[in-house]
Design a protein around this nucleic acid. Structure first.
Lengths: 201, 201
DNA sequence: CTTATATATTGACGTTGTCAATATAGAAGC
DNA sequence: GCTTCTATATTGACAACGTCAATATATAAG
């Protein structure tokens, strides 16, 4: 019988390779961030781990499925950062902290961010756990906006998300100039936060 | 000689196409918008035009060069729309019109917009005419912001561009819900424009 | 031990971007 | 007219890609 310690574990994860599934995800994430999105091929991932080109098909039905899982893991670590930033006391600083955490995550993991928030996954709606993780990661910002003195409606949330997402995208896509990008971005976030509160500085 | 053989009847009468370069650009733009970015292959473009797979290499040194030219053409038609919107009299309405034209262009040509403002071109700086066209397309918004009563600095321009670009990206990448996307976007732009002017509604 | 099953490999197919060599058409020079 | 030159187009090939089918193997179950 199986060990009662593991409540689930209907699938033994240790076999030829040991834990190929986790190794594939780690290799994919590493390749994605280091070599760029174009270099992430199913075969390259398998090569990196040291298995044959079709071994991953025992764990992921397609390349997109693997990438969707990488993105899902990305959301899970992203939401941790967002929750940490949301613990800031003052509402204004809280929103600033959330924005900085958002842009900071994108700057730290540009390829992963693109995979999560871009069009890397053609039909990401086919992966429910990915959708769930993505929606969950939006909660802190939505909550912070709802806590504002002047309760805003949905358009405020959309505008805020658009502002931060656009800033992150422009930054990591190299559209904002070489050196002063971060400084400018920080000022833009601050300026926007000030706008939200109606006062300046 | 070859008359007896005739291995393969060419799809057109003359050996030389005439204006292959323009035909390739048109086919690429059509394929891009209709079939999606993933379906745009060098060979598919050639197939669409009716030439062999390597014929395009006489006009574009690589697939990326062709796509960069498509993007450049995109900027040239985009800037026309921006200039038209910039002719709006009242500064506030002018900024709104620019924002609507921006988001409208992205909604009308999502794949082209992604190619222009996203990471479709890995090293777009290698194509000077593309860079020039891209920079030129930013002038109307920058001008409109400079004409605001409260002259803002660079961070305001960045924040504005980020807001509009983020909105467009979220829209065309399907992150904003199915139906009410456009309405929400319009309200967000208006809300943002109101913020810029310090008055509401 | 035998069997069953989950996992991994080999080999193949059609696709892609791109290169090298070759063929053709139309213009320039005689 | 003919020849030659050059721009353009074609064929064929190569490695790499995603994915499928058939096969092998190592552990778990009986």
């Amino acid at each position: 019988m199986k060990t009662s310690k593991r409540p689930r574990a209907p699938l033994r994860q240790s076999y030829h390779h040991g834990d190929l599934r986790a190794a594939l995800l780690a290799a994919a994430a590493r390749l994605l961030e280091k070599e760029g999105a174009e270099a992430v091929s199913f075969r390259a991932i398998a090569r990196e781990v040291g298995v044959s080109q079709t071994a991953p098909y025992n764990h992921f039905e397609s390349k997109e499925h693997l990438l969707a899982t990488v993105a899902e893991d990305g959301f899970r670590s992203f939401v941790v950062l967002q929750r940490a930033a949301a613990r800031t006391r003052l509402p204004r600083r809280r929103l600033q902290a959330l924005g900085r955490a958002y842009v900071g995550f994108a700057s730290a993991h540009p390829q992963l961010y693109r995979l999560m928030f871009g069009v890397g996954l053609a039909d990401w709606k086919r992966y429910p756990s990915l959708v769930e993780a993505a929606l969950e990661s939006c909660i802190p910002v939505q909550q912070a906006l709802a806590d504002l003195p002047s309760g805003e409606d949905g358009s405020c949330w959309v505008a805020t998300w658009a502002m931060v997402h656009g800033l992150a995208s422009l930054l990591i896509d190299g559209k904002l100039g070489p050196s002063d990008a971060d400084r400018l971005a920080d000022r833009a976030v601050g300026w926007y936060a000030a706008l939200l509160f109606g006062d300046d500085r």
